[in-house]
Design a protein around this nucleic acid. Structure first.
Lengths: 67, 67
DNA sequence: CACCTCATATACCAAATCGGGATATTTTAA
DNA sequence: TTAAAATATCCCGATTTGGTATATGAGGTG
């Protein structure tokens, strides 16, 4: 997943991102390190948060554009 | 999710789909009825199986094209 | 109708996975 | 070098998952 890449490029901390999405900081950390997988609905929320497609978030495409 | 729609349009039974993906028939049923959510890696495998984007599979776009 | 077959859905349960709080570790900046 | 900020990890109760077995439903045939 491109979470860390997207987050870093916007200079957002895990804590800010977590608060914006009503999640715990350690949850973000776990998603980024791969220790946990988000549910599909959270996956979608994260994609929306960064305004990218889910495919892009999952590194299935180089094109970030959302539909 | 568009699993049922994609599966039906290709006239594939849950059992065939399950065997093709090395899953259980009831697992497919549960995904279709929403009783269970697939993991992200299975979500990706299902999208590949139907050759559609994950965004399309998740009904986030009308365009089925994969990247 | 009675019965069979194929397709799909559901109940139960052990096992795996999850998130929260607390804390440890790492990074950054003064 | 030290403090603060950022990130990672531990423990654990709670939730979610998939497998087996079984129920339900939809067509078809005699």
């Amino acid at each position: 997943m491109r979470i860390k890449q997207l987050r870093s490029s916007k200079n957002i901390s895990q804590l800010k991102m977590a608060m914006d999405l009503s999640l715990n900081q350690n949850t973000i950390s776990r998603y980024e390190t791969g220790a946990r997988e988000p549910s599909i609905s959270e996956l979608i929320r994260i994609a929306e948060y960064f305004d990218v497609s889910v495919d892009y978030l999952l590194e299935l495409t180089d094109n970030p554009k959302r539909a």
